[in-house]
Amino acid sequence: MAGGRPERLAALRELIEQVQPVVAAHEQTLPVDPALRDLLPFGGLQRGTTICVGGGPGATSLALALVAGPSRSGAWVGCVSVDSLGWVAAAELGVDLDRVAVVRADVDEWPTVAAALVDGFDVVLCGPDHRPDQRQVARLAGRARERGAVVVALEDSASTRARPAPGRSWPGADVRLMVDPASPVDWQGPGQGWGRLRSRSLTVLASGRHGADRARRIVLGLPGPDGVGVVPGDVARPAATRPAVDVMERAGVVPFPARSA
């Protein structure tokens, strides 16, 4: 065999370069529901990143729909400070509840809990019941990057309390998904005393950095037509017609406008 030791070593190195698989960042993603693919860079939840969900009404459903895909593909979702989350709604939006663990802890234990969750869970959902300070957020983001976990941070939008200004509470998030408060949120189903809540259309604005810097704006049906799942585009309006009058009267509902005494 020709060539000395250095040459052979160099050849071997070259061979290693050729056969070694290259894992690009966009390949390390957790799959999400097809309807949400357009919102995210690389079409999925990229491991090691932080995603902040907030804005107008519907943010909680959006966050739940976001973690539904990973949970159904076998990833575990660890949740902290989510005391007010409705788990039935989570299941309806597609979250596999067999892959969910919830940690109940005091506020001062939040950093410990979040760090431990990031170590072992693929997706960590930080709920709106506690808002960590900037230093804690930065430390958590660093840890998630190192461990390859995805942090989904949910800003408080639904409560009756005043909301924090958007974008202030999770500094340094890689992707920011905001339900556009300026666009109308349309609930289909309820009328003036008839029907029930069925589905909703909302507009989501996505912004961010590292491949997500191009702002996107999409309309989603969240929840979808049957009250479950998420669908792309405006939900087709089912005819929210008034039922027959005798049914109305049997239900004791006075047709609008109100009958005044």
Binding site: A90, L97, V100, A101, R104, A116, L117, D119, G120, D122
Partner: peptide
């Protein structure tokens, strides 16, 4: 599977620190 094992390890650590009842499942 592997994901479950990792998650349970980290859950066990939290149980050790915060008490057995701190980690819940729906």
């Amino acid at each position: 599977d592997d994901a479950t094992e990792r998650a349970l390890r980290s859950a066990a650590r939290l149980q050790g620190q915060l008490g057995v009842d701190a980690v819940l499942v729906p």
